[in-house]
Amino acid sequence: MRKLKRYGPPILLISPSLFLIGLFVYVLIFSSAQTSMTDIYTNPQFAGTRPHTFVWFTNFIDLLKDGDFQHSLKNLLLYTLVFITGAMFFGFLWAWLLDKRARFEGVFRSVFLFPMAVSSVAAGVVWRWLLNSNVGDRATGLNRLFQMVGLDFLENKWTNNISFGIVAVAIPAIWQMSGYIMALFLAGFRGIPTELREAARVDGANEFKLYRYVIFPQLSPVALSALIILGHMSLKVFDLIMAITGAKFYPTKVPAVDMYNLMTEGNFANAAAVGIILLLVVLVLIVPYLIHTARGDKR
């Protein structure tokens, strides 16, 4: 009875949220998995006016065998690699440059971070102009800029390249997220106690050793968080592609875009299968991280 009095109110207070998350996350994931194993390929089947049957993993096998979907997976991998590398590189570089007490530090920080406050759709509007694939006399956007500053050899077709078009989409993503990574690393740099650097100096560490043995180890938790955040974001990429090239552009499509097209066609079973595949990919990344941080919590 006393327990009920003590624990009843908090459980009651949190139960609406628990119910909502339980339904909208857990039940729906389960339901998604269920739909992904059916043959609901048309709208009437989805509405329940036509029958459907259970087909086990047929949809998954078909998707993974399909060359078009493989192209999406390959694009996603390529995008993730370029995006993470780029954002980590510039984020770290800017933080490193700013950590040395640059003049107008606040201005630099604000400008580097501002793209994050802009929606991917708005960013997509201007980046589609910048990534215009015209070259030569008809060039606009970055290609024209390259001509103007004498870097003509950099002119290229951007998103119009069937194998590497997706890399062009990673550029605006790097533009948007590098400032965030900078903020993370800057907080990391500032969190390193001055005494630690001093001690290393007194012990005769040179610049290289200082970084290798003092600064990098101190920054590694930050780097890990940054990697997880970026990886997690990049696997969900959707907005930018919809804004820059649209839903029907083969060279730059990724699973999330495929899913949108499948759903608009009424192919709900395959759409759900794509969703589950994305979930599995994200889980591989997130679950170790969650376990890692949960362990850290207990200590």
């Binding site: 003590r6 624990y7 908090p10 459980i11 949190i14 949220s17 628990l18 998350i21 909208f24 996350v25 857990y26 039940v27 729906l28 994931i29 339901s31 998604s32 739909t35 997690h232 696997l235 969900k236 959707f238 699973p255 999330a256 899913m259 759903m263 709900f268 759409a271 759900a272 794509v274 969703g275 589950i276 994305l278 979930l279 994200v282 997130i286 969650l290 949960a294 919590d297």
Partner: peptide, 26 residues
Amino acid sequence: FPYSNIVFTLLLFGMFIPYQAVMVPL
């Protein structure tokens, strides 16, 4: 309350899922 840490982790998980995973039934 008992198991509140587990409840927290269960809630938090909702932040990490790609929403595509729930989009069809949603």
